[in-house]
């Protein structure tokens, strides 16, 4: 029943919502507007080419963002591949094993990680993580398992796709954890009681309950991918920023975000480069939208199915 007061309430909540909608529309407009020039010039090869040749001469200028797309997908993939088992473990640990005091302490720590300023991650990644990974992980792997294409390039410096992936994993993990934890913890008590009543061990209970939140897990994976894809500063500092596509984890590369961050300073000097950067940004926007929509839909559908929340 919608009374007048309720209607007024709704109306008062519309301006903030309208602001968000307006901001998004503006964003779409600005991005599409600025992407058109490079897309008209290069068509779909913009996304498919590795050639990035800035030039003041119109004839030789060409911008291909394939390496950036590749790097974004690879680093996000590594990030989620690392963050997923960690988040799952932490979820299970907190909900099945840990006593309540540790539970509170632990989730406080994770919340803390989630909000830590990203530049601190970047600074640490640049000066501590990169050399550490190079010495302890990359060099040994290259020496002993260098025949595998994943480890085939010599790690010249710690600034690589792998380092970027690791730092992204550390940054993304609090988010995937929060989502999974919330999903797991909100499995209605009845299911949990039923499982325990059957005499399941913690391992068996976990498996059963986990299978119930599968859509939420997938959803949080997608959201984590999206989050990893858009991180700018920390990645720019450790990824090496070269237009390379290589199966080797130790090579440097680009992500769309780091491409924009590193090239924007010089871009106005080159015809159509600014447009190219907006085009790359547009791609990321669309990718993020897609990942997000699917991820959110999965999580919502799961919630509905579980009968969780109003």
């Amino acid at each position: 029943m919608r009374s007048r007061s309720d209607r007024l309430f709704l109306l008062s909540l519309l301006p903030p919502a309208a602001t968000i909608v307006a901001a998004m529309m503006l964003m779409i407009y600005v991005f599409v507007y600025h992407s058109v020039p490079v897309l008209v010039r290069e068509g779909l090869t913009f996304f498919a080419s590795s050639r990035w040749s800035p030039s003041t001469s119109l004839r030789s200028a060409f911008y291909g963002i394939l390496p950036a797309i590749y790097g974004t997908l690879v680093t996000s993939g590594i990030a989620v591949a690392i963050a997923l088992p960690l988040s799952l473990s932490m979820t299970l640990f907190l909900n099945e094993v840990a006593p309540p005091r540790i539970r509170a302490f632990f989730s406080t720590l994770v919340d803390m990680m989630a909000g830590l300023p990203t530049i601190v991650y970047g600074l640490w990644g640049l000066f501590v993580l990169a050399p550490l990974l190079q010495r302890l992980v990359m060099e040994p792997l290259h020496r002993y398992l260098g025949f595998l294409p994943l480890f085939s390039c010599p790690p010249i410096s710690g600034y690589s796709v792998l380092t970027a992936g690791v730092i992204l994993a550390i940054m993304v993990m609090p988010y995937t954890f929060a989502l999974m934890n919330e999903a797991y913890a909100s499995i209605p008590l009845t299911y949990r009681e039923a499982v325990l009543a059957m005499g399941a061990s913690r391992y068996e209970a976990s498996r059963i309950l986990l299978s119930m939140i599968r859509p939420a897990i997938v959803g949080s994976v997608l959201l984590g991918l999206g989050r990893a894809a858009s991180e700018t500063v920390a990645v720019t500092l450790v990824i090496g920023n070269t237009p390379t596509i290589s199966p080797c984890l130790f090579s440097s590369g680009y992500t769309i975000a780091s491409l924009i961050a590193t090239q924007y300073g010089e871009a106005p000097l080159y015809p159509f480069m600014v447009s190219a950067l907006y085009g790359a940004g547009l791609f990321l926007l669309v990718l993020g939208l897609a990942l997000n929509t699917v991820g959110l839909a999965l999580v919502t559908r799961w919630r509905v199915r579980m009968g969780v929340s109003a």
């Binding site: 919502a17 968000i20 909608v21 901001a23 998004m24 503006l26 964003m27 600005v30 991005f31 959201l223 999206g226 989050r227 894809a229 858009s230 991180e231 700018t232 500063v233 769309i256 975000a257 924009i260 961050a261 924007y264 907006y278 940004g281 990321l284 926007l285 990718l287 993020g288 939208l289 990942l291 997000n292 929509t293 959110l296």
Partner: peptide
């Protein structure tokens, strides 16, 4: 819509917001 939109903003590389 707004729920989906505000989550989408999270996906945007922060440097693009600076450009905007």
């Amino acid at each position: 819509a707004v729920r989906a939109l505000s989550k989408t903003f999270m996906e945007i590389p922060t440097i693009l917001l600076s450009m905007l």
